[in-house]
Computed example of a mutant assay.
Amino acid sequence: MTYDEFLFSVKNEDTLPDGLNVHLQALWYDGKGNWQRAHDLIDELTDVTSAHVHAYLHRVEGDGWNARYWYGRAKQVPFEGSLEAEWDALVKRLVGM
């Protein structure tokens, strides 16, 4: 799936597209405003990509301490831009842009 196709699906589709990895699934649900579903998908995963998405989700939640913890687990510096910019950067990275 391309970046533009992903954005289109978030804005215009009611069901999760087939073939998305768990990280993109979580970002899709977050993009639809379903933070809890997004977090549930990532919560028990321990790889660095999941940790990065997890950090972003805790920023969305407003839990800075927890977000910093997950950035550390992801081996990433905490993102300092807007939530929208981080979501966009994560999606672009995960679709291979």
Rank of each mutant, 00 (worst) to 15 (best):
T2D: 10
T2R: 14
Y3R: 09
Y3M: 07
Y3I: 05
D4Q: 15
E5S: 14
E5N: 10
F6V: 09
F6H: 01
F6M: 06
L7E: 13
S9L: 09
D14E: 13
D14V: 06
D14W: 02
D14K: 06
T15V: 12
T15G: 00
T15M: 06
T15L: 08
L16E: 14
P17S: 11
D18I: 01
D18E: 15
G19R: 10
L20T: 11
L20H: 08
L20A: 07
L20V: 10
V22L: 09
V22D: 07
V22E: 06
H23W: 15
H23Q: 09
L24S: 04
Q25I: 05
Q25G: 06
A26E: 01
A26Y: 02
L27C: 08
L27H: 04
L27K: 08
W28H: 05
W28I: 10
W28A: 02
W28K: 06
Y29Q: 12
G31M: 06
G31C: 02
K32F: 09
K32C: 05
N34W: 08
W35I: 12
W35S: 04
W35R: 15
W35V: 08
Q36D: 13
R37S: 12
R37V: 15
A38G: 07
A38M: 04
H39V: 06
D40P: 00
D40T: 14
D40R: 01
I42N: 01
D43S: 11
D43Q: 15
E44T: 13
E44V: 00
E44K: 14
L45I: 11
L45E: 08
T46S: 13
T46F: 02
D47M: 01
D47Q: 03
V48D: 11
V48G: 00
A51H: 05
A51M: 07
H52W: 15
H54L: 02
A55M: 03
A55D: 02
Y56F: 15
L57S: 07
L57R: 04
R59N: 09
V60H: 01
V60T: 06
D63H: 04
W65D: 15
W65T: 14
Y69D: 04
W70Y: 14
Y71C: 03
G72Y: 05
R73C: 12
V77A: 09
V77C: 00
V77G: 00
F79R: 10
E80F: 02
E80R: 13
E80G: 12
E80H: 07
G81I: 10
G81L: 04
G81E: 06
S82L: 07
S82K: 03
S82G: 14
S82P: 03
A85V: 05
A85S: 14
E86C: 10
E86M: 04
A89G: 06
K92L: 15
K92H: 08
R93N: 13
R93M: 08
L94N: 12
G96C: 01
G96L: 08
